[in-house]
Simulated assay, not measured.
Amino acid sequence: MNTETLSLSSAQEFVTNIFYRAGITVNGPRASDIKVHNTKFYNRVLAQGSLGLGESYMEGWWDCEDLSQFFFLLLRARLDEAVNPATLALQSLKSKVLTLGRNDPYKIGQFHYDIGDDLYRVMLDKRMIYTCGYWRDALSLDEAQENKLQLICDKLYLEPGMRVLDIGCGWGGFLKYAAENYGIKGVGVTVSKEQASEAKKNCRGFDIDIRLEDYRETVGQFDRIVSIGMFEHVGKKNYLTFFKKAAECLTDDGIFLLHTIGNSEVSGAGTDPWIEKYIFPNSMIPSISHVATAIEGLFVMEDWHNFGPDYDKTLLSWFENFEHGWSKLQDKFDKTFYRKWKYYLLSCAGTFRARRTQLWQIVLTKHGLVNGYTSFR
């Protein structure tokens, strides 16, 4: 069926029936149902898939009281695979092409992280940690993020005086926490000018060197290496380069912890087209086989921990902060940005709730620890 040429009534019937298969009623009464304001929505979704779904939301063509649950239902029923597979195949091909070469490493910094620290101060926890929290025994976002930082320190077996490299250090939150609590010396690298500037202020008074630097340019030897939420920007064709650089910088008895979103379903699948265009250009979520292939001959895998459902809670907390703090941001960002950011946070929450994406912490050593490795949970 050529969905791009369907009449309005046929397109509406087609889309309505697809959503109904997931328990979503168009113009229905439940919070997870959608309300369509512009009838062009139906053909646009059929022609453009997830890109059309997201753009039409940004433009106010439809609304949903509970976006995260809408996406949970949609993705749990795998309806994304039922609409316009040709678009999905094209996006997958585009992703492979984009990750063939050395992408501009500073593009993502300028596009996403440099849009203003004021946004992230409103949205994030007090330490400005822009990655999944660890919600075991946590009652707030601040507690979940502190739990996560402590979990990483435990997994790294940190000791005073150790030299630690943070690849993709953000605003310096992890290095500052590790310096405060373990007395480490740190180097943090980021491709975001805004993050680098703020991280230097944040880590002032500690033996921490913050650099505006691509990880491929980093030199030195480190007892411990962490990369927390940066690997998603590396790209499949650069995975081996990434792990070779980590191995080069890690001491023979060192430990490397990789914290990354993961795709457990399809190796080589491209990033969602809407996310690629509006949130994280040139990004790619790695699969298990991507990581496994790239670390062969370089590292021993000591531990692989998945706590993906915790990202659902983290994203909901970020949205709650964003929503409550919008009055502080609306002079700088317009209504379209508000809808874009809401769609980003809540669609991602639904994705993790549906278990379509994961959150992994992977502990690696170069030769395997002689007495074995005991993990923490």
Rank of each mutant, 00 (worst) to 15 (best):
Tyr182Trp: 15
Ala178Ser: 15
Asn202His: 15
Phe231Ala: 04
Thr241Arg: 10
Asn282Gln: 13
Asp253Val: 08
Ala179Asn: 11
Leu151His: 15
Ile167Met: 10
Glu276Ser: 14
Lys236Asp: 11
Lys277Pro: 02
Leu149Pro: 03
Leu212Pro: 10
Gly262Leu: 00
Ala144Trp: 07
Lys245Asn: 14
Ile261Thr: 13
Val226Ser: 15
Thr260His: 01
Arg224Tyr: 02
Pro273Val: 11
Arg163Thr: 13
Ile275His: 06
Ser140Trp: 12
Pro281Glu: 07
Asp223His: 15
Lys236Tyr: 08
Glu180Ser: 11
Cys169Tyr: 08
Phe222Ser: 06
Met230Gly: 05
Leu156Ser: 09
Glu143Met: 14
Asn181His: 15
Gly172Glu: 07
Ser197Gly: 12
Met230Glu: 10
Lys176Tyr: 04
Ile184Glu: 06
Leu158Ser: 02
Leu250Ala: 04
Glu232Thr: 04
His259Met: 10
Val164Gly: 12
Gln145Ser: 10
Asp207Thr: 08
Asp207Pro: 08
Gly168Leu: 00
Cys153Ile: 09
Ile279Trp: 05
Gly170Glu: 01
Tyr157Cys: 05
Ala246Arg: 00
Ser197Trp: 05
Ala247Cys: 07
Thr190Tyr: 03
Gly183Trp: 01
Phe243Gln: 09
Lys193Gln: 09
Trp274Asp: 12
Val226Phe: 05
Leu158His: 08
Asn202Glu: 05
